[in-house]
Simulated scan of single mutants.
Amino acid sequence: MNKQDAPQYVRPKDIDDRSTFWQRVGWRLEAIAWDVVYWWPMKALGPDRASDAAGWIVKRIAPMLSQSKTVKRNLRLAFPEWDEDKIEQTAKAAWESVGRTAGELPHLPKIHPYEGDRVEVVNAERLDAVEAAGKGAVFISGHFANWEVMAAVICRRPVDCLVTYRALNNPHIDRRINKVRHDYGIGVLAPKGLGTRELMRALSKGRSVALMNDQKFNQGLAVPFFGHDAMTAPGPARLAVKYGVPIIPVSTVRTGPARFRVTIHDPIASAEGLKGDEAVEDCVKKITAFIEAEVRANPGQWFWQHRRWPKSAWKDAGV
Rank of each mutant, 00 (worst) to 15 (best):
A78L: 02
W82K: 10
P80T: 06
W95L: 11
I87T: 00
W82F: 07
T101F: 12
D83E: 10
A94L: 07
E88D: 09
K92V: 08
A94G: 10
P80G: 06
P106T: 01
Q89C: 00
E81N: 14
L108I: 14
A78D: 00
E88V: 00
P80N: 10
W82Y: 06
A78H: 03
W82S: 10
W95Q: 12
Q89E: 03
D85Q: 09
P80M: 06
G103E: 10
T101E: 07
D83V: 12
K86D: 01
K110M: 15
P80V: 07
V98P: 09
Q89V: 00
K110F: 12
W95E: 09
A91F: 09
E88A: 04
T90E: 05
P80I: 04
E81H: 15
L105K: 07
P106L: 03
T90Q: 02
E96Q: 13
E96C: 01
P109I: 11
V98K: 04
V98H: 07
L108P: 07
T101V: 07
R100W: 05
A93P: 06
A102S: 11
G99W: 00
E104V: 14
P106S: 12
L105M: 15
Q89G: 03
P109R: 14
E84R: 01
R100H: 12
A94Q: 05
G103P: 04
A94V: 05
G99L: 01
E81D: 15
L105H: 11
Q89I: 00
A102E: 09
A93T: 08
E81V: 12
T101K: 10
P80R: 06
E104K: 15
H107N: 03
A91R: 08
V98R: 02
E96M: 09
S97M: 10
T101Y: 12
A91Q: 03
E81R: 14
E84Q: 03
H107M: 06
V98L: 15
Q89S: 04
E81S: 15
A91L: 10
W95A: 13
L77S: 01
K92M: 12
A78C: 11
E104G: 14
A93G: 13
R100A: 04
I87H: 04
E104D: 15
G99T: 06
R100C: 08
H107K: 08
V98Q: 11
F79P: 04
L108Q: 15
K92A: 12
K86W: 03
Q89H: 03
A94D: 05
H107W: 13
E81F: 12
P109L: 11
A93H: 05
W95Y: 14
R100I: 08
Q89A: 07
K86N: 07
L77D: 00
L108A: 14
D85V: 00
K110W: 14
I87N: 01
L77A: 01
G99S: 08
A93N: 05
P106C: 11
W95C: 12
E84H: 01
L105I: 13
L105E: 07
L105F: 14
A102R: 01
G103I: 02
W82I: 07
I87M: 02
W82T: 09
L105P: 08
V98I: 15
R100G: 13
T90K: 05
A78E: 02
A94P: 03
L108C: 13
D85N: 14
T101D: 03
P106N: 10
A91W: 08
L108D: 12
G99M: 05
A94F: 04
H107V: 08
L105R: 11
L77Y: 03
